[in-house]
């Protein structure tokens, strides 16, 4: 199978005071469609930076990322946004639901941005899949952490993305709720055949992914 995500010589440097600080150094790897990859490492090892670059949320100092063969950084900011909209779904540690929109509207958001006509129906189906139909009209602040992350999962899967980027999806949840959310995420992942790229420092969770990429001080070890 062809690689859906490919990182080639990815480096990121930032200025710390006057001296450059290397956050990522020459990271190269590939993930094939339908695979799951866990990026693991200690705090500050560059996990989230790598995820940001893979999703085209940030630009590297050098190197490139190919999503389904398209060079992310040959595109401008809007081009990368369009590509993300077409290919990617996201789950974040801090859920990142829009506080002014209710659960259903949050799930509808990526569909509406993409101009989908049947946004409401698909969002309702997606909420049903995560077992939150009854809470569809609640605002995020009226949902528990676990419920908010399930809404985030519904939003991530509603566009049937080819790739799901997840940044510490259980970081803000207690163990039991976190475990439920992970089960749900993996199940949806399997059902849709989505490629999963997951940042975590939870070794148990990492082991449940097909591949692991271990980072230390910005380098693959």
């Amino acid at each position: 199978m062809a690689a859906i995500v490919q990182a080639v010589g990815l480096s990121k440097q930032v200025l710390s005071g006057d001296s450059p600080l290397t956050i990522l150094h020459d990271v190269t790897f590939a993930v094939e469609a339908g695979e799951s990859l866990a990026i693991v490492g200690a705090s500050g090892s560059g996990k989230s930076t790598l995820l940001g670059l893979l999703a085209g949320l940030d630009v590297p100092s050098s190197g490139s990322v190919l999503l389904q063969g398209a060079d992310m950084f040959a595109l401008d900011e809007d081009g990368r946004a369009r590509l993300r909209g077409e290919l990617a779904g996201f789950v974040f540690q801090s859920f990142q639901l829009l506080p002014a929109l209710n659960a259903l509207e949050n799930v509808m958001l990526p569909l509406e941005l993409a101009g989908a006509k049947d946004a409401r129906q698909r969002a309702e189906d997606s909420l049903q899949q995560v077992g939150l139909s009854a809470r569809a009209h609640h605002l995020p602040k009226h949902l528990s952490g676990g419920e908010q992350q399930r809404v985030a999962l519904a939003r991530a899967f509603v566009t049937q993305p080819k790739i799901l980027f997840a940044d510490e999806p259980t970081g803000n949840l207690d163990a039991a709720t976190g475990s439920q959310v992970i089960e749900l995420m993996l199940e949806l992942n399997r059902a849709q055949g989505t490629t999963l790229i997951l940042v975590t420092h939870d070794e148990n969770l990492a082991r449940r992914c097909g591949k692991q990429l271990r980072l230390a001080a910005g380098q693959v070890i």
Binding site: A55, L57, E77, D78, A81, R82, R84, G85, E86, A88, F90, Q96, L97, L98, P99, A100, L109, P110, L113, A114, R155
Partner: peptide
Amino acid sequence: LDGVAVMRCLGAQQTQ
């Protein structure tokens, strides 16, 4: 800021 960042992340373009 957060809302727009999320929308940009979910594929919203600048003109949108």
